[in-house]
Simulated scan of single mutants.
Amino acid sequence: MTDFRQRYSFLASPTWIGWFAVCILFMVVCYFLGQWQWDRRDAALDEIGTIQANYDQGPIPYSEARDIFASADEDDEWKSVELVGEYLAQDHLFARNRANSGQVGYEQVVPFREASTGDVVIISRGWLAPGSEDGSLPASNPEPPSGQAEVTVRIKPGEPEIGRDAPEGQLASIELDEIEDQVGYSVMGGAYGEMLSESPQPAEQPRGFARPSVDEGPHLGYSMQWIAFGMLSFVGWGYAARLQARSNDVAYAEEDDGELPAGIPKREVLRRARAERMRQQGRLTDEDAEDAWVDEHMAGR
């Protein structure tokens, strides 16, 4: 133990203590990055659970979902709702920068007045490909059914405001308060609907929405990787300390290398130096004593 403490006494120097503090700091940073990935995984699992619970359930009437459209909860996302009423097609808008199958286009957003209550629900009828050279307008604008229609939608919570401007008649996000400002009348402010079907069905419709993914992503693996990176910093510190101790042993041996025959490899110098130090400390093992006896008798030949 005494030999070990002496060999690694340099670890108490300010330089090595400083590097150890850096390892601790790095480990703390890696822990929080790993926790961030873990939280993202939890959020993904919650979303997957909501999809699995709601997506394939049968539609409910608007009378049961009215409170959801007024103030949506995350657990209500993807529920199917049947509405009867009419589209207010003259007030349609385009939500821009909407991805679909690797392309970026628009969603056609149309207010819908529910017949029994007079509530106006915002419905995204689907995706439209860009048509102009600069992509500033969709290629087409399919008309919704005129007159009374029966529509089945999936509930989507209103999107947050993202602080971006959009051309007139377009939206940077499906932010329901902004839509209300643009159309000039009250709309249900908690959720909107993604169209699933409508009757009567027009000859042309926007492209329907794909089923949401239930892949949780690589967050678990990333979380474990960050923790491993943090632990590896201590492994590297320990390895560097071992190399420094060996270097010190060589330096110690080279101070007394005048007593050794020329041409002895440094590995042998190191072994003999360590044996000499252990002999001085009274901790020479039987194997070391035997090696020392052989060295002593072989040197005289």
Rank of each mutant, 00 (worst) to 15 (best):
T2Q: 13
L11K: 01
T15D: 02
F20V: 03
V22H: 01
V22Y: 00
C23I: 05
L25M: 14
V29I: 15
C30M: 15
G34F: 02
Q35A: 14
W38Q: 10
W38H: 14
R40N: 13
A43R: 13
A43S: 07
L45E: 13
I48S: 06
I48V: 15
I48Y: 05
I48A: 10
G49E: 10
T50N: 08
T50L: 04
T50E: 05
I51L: 12
Q52A: 07
P61H: 10
S63G: 06
A65V: 04
F69V: 11
S71D: 15
D76Q: 15
E77I: 13
K79W: 03
V84H: 10
V84D: 10
E86Y: 04
L88P: 01
Q90T: 13
Q90G: 06
H92R: 15
N97Y: 06
N100V: 06
G102E: 05
V104R: 12
V104A: 11
V104K: 07
G105E: 09
Y106W: 12
V109T: 07
V109Y: 04
F112M: 08
G118I: 02
G118P: 04
V121Q: 08
I123G: 00
S124Q: 03
R125M: 06
R125H: 04
G126W: 00
G126I: 00
L128P: 08
A129C: 03
P130S: 11
L137V: 08
L137W: 08
N141E: 15
G147P: 00
A149F: 02
T152E: 14
E159P: 09
I162G: 05
R164M: 14
D165W: 04
D165L: 07
A166K: 06
A166R: 12
A166M: 12
P167W: 14
L171F: 05
A172D: 13
I174K: 00
E175V: 11
L176S: 00
E178N: 14
E178S: 13
I179E: 10
Q182C: 03
V183T: 09
G184A: 04
Y185W: 02
G189P: 14
G189H: 00
M195R: 08
S197E: 04
E198M: 02
A203S: 13
P206N: 09
G208A: 14
F209C: 02
A210I: 01
R211D: 12
P212Y: 10
P212L: 05
P212R: 09
S213M: 09
V214C: 06
V214Y: 04
V214E: 15
G217P: 09
H219E: 12
L220A: 12
M224R: 10
W226G: 06
F229V: 09
V235T: 09
G236N: 03
G238R: 09
Y239E: 02
A240P: 03
A241V: 01
R242M: 12
Q244I: 01
Q244A: 13
S247M: 03
S247D: 14
V250F: 06
A253C: 03
E255N: 12
D256H: 14
L260V: 08
P261Y: 03
P261S: 08
G263Y: 06
I264F: 00
I264M: 01
P265C: 05
K266S: 11
K266I: 15
E268T: 14
L270K: 04
L270V: 15
A273D: 07
R274I: 10
R277A: 12
R279H: 09
Q280L: 13
G282Q: 07
R283Q: 13
D288N: 04
D288W: 05
A289L: 08
D291H: 07
D295K: 01
E296W: 08
G300P: 01
R301I: 10
R301F: 14
